[in-house]
Design a binder for these strands. Structure first.
Lengths: 216, 216
DNA sequence: TAGATTGTTAATCGATTAACAATC
DNA sequence: TAGATTGTTAATCGATTAACAATC
């Protein structure tokens, strides 16, 4: 499986399709779905659904549609969701702790997900050695060793803005290729490294633009 | 000020520019910046910077560049950041509470932000009437009244997936035009309403695609 | 004036949509 | 077979980049 240089716009829609298929697989006994239906449920045009899927193979049957279970399985393979995703989080401040407690643990028992949060890191010596939700907090010095030992695949960056680039660099040097960034900065990374950003203030400022000038 | 139908791709970059200008205004005494420099700091090409800004007016001087303080101010006006942004949050579960405690309060005292979280809502009668960080939790019945009284501009949806569309509809009916959605569902809204989504599992599944097949 | 950088138009690039032959 | 829907190619649409005259 080597489909090089498929646009990220395409990749971003695959989880959308997968979510629809997960629902169908659970809640109903629909065994087949057309690009039309799948598109409506995912909020994407039918032609685009077919084009997106066609990058990876011929998953449908003409005149019939796509087999829900089969397509779901193929998407899980394409997205690397069959394997366990080992995750580390750096920055055990209030945000980091909230993420550990409320977010990441939630995905531990998800259907189409196999996420395991294995390590926490913090620069504050007072926090190193403590446990949060049973997960040990380690020093930034330990990053290379733990990434290697635990085969960390994704790191969640939840440190303040001015430390984010530095910790990102440390994980990149240790071999991590996927970063989920909560710090309000644009991380500079080699293009072998993928960054997803959750930047609440950018989103809020964008929304503010759409506030009507005169009262509702 | 009515610049109708400017692409959302443009609007999304304005907060990026504003962030750069905020930093310059604080940390240094740089009074002028070129589209070149601003682009580098924001991660955007210089031609695009000029084109984006030109949608809203002529803010620069040929041969000189843009005045940092002036441009910052213009962007704040364009993005509606001069006025107080009154926010409500619905869904006081573990996620909602974490958002209240760790995220939204943080923006209360931000330089280029004037966010005020004024009301919480929950469908659980046991929670209605309690306070979270000093903010009262109210019943969904109260949505129309409170939106009107407090002039709520943005609602943060932090309810489970199956309740999200319903609560979104309630706020839309009450006149809210901006929704920040944390529920893992695509909200269907009239196109007079803007939705920003924070969907962690979609981001993680996207990142997973980029995990190398064979060990780092 | 000479040098620099804007605002803007034209060219390029990429992503989405429409159309349809292949085929289940 | 007749009807439906895929996979794919060609057409369209929109967004980014390049280029440059205007001008500070």
């Amino acid at each position: 499986m080597r489909w090089n240089k498929i646009s990220d716009a395409v990749i971003r829609r695959l989880p959308l399709y997968l979510r629809v298929l997960d629902e169908l697989a659970n809640e109903s006994d629909t065994a087949l779905i057309s690009s039309q239906e799948l598109g409506v449920k995912a909020g994407v045009g039918p032609a685009l659904v077919r084009k997106d899927l066609a990058w990876f193979g011929e998953f449908g049957k003409q005149g019939v549609g796509y087999d829900v279970g089969f397509l779901r399985n193929e998407l899980r393979k394409i997205l690397n969701l069959e394997q366990e995703l080992t995750v580390a989080l750096v920055g055990v401040g209030s945000l980091g702790e909230a993420l550990v407690r409320y977010h990441l643990k939630r995905y531990a028992d998800n259907d189409s997900f196999n996420l395991r949060l294995v390590a926490l890191f913090d620069s504050d010596p007072a926090k190193v050695g403590t446990l949060v939700e049973g997960i040990p907090v380690m020093s930034l010095e330990d990053i290379p060793r733990i990434v290697e030992e635990e085969q960390i695949k994704i790191v969640v960056v939840a440190v303040p803005a001015d430390g984010a680039q530095d910790v990102a660099n440390r994980f990149i040097r240790a071999g991590v290729k996927c970063i989920l960034n909560y710090a309000p900065v644009k991380l500079t990374t080699p293009d072998t490294v993928q960054v997803a950003s959750v930047d609440l203030s950018l989103e809020l400022q964008r929304l503010a633009y759409y506030i009507p000038k005169h009262p509702n």
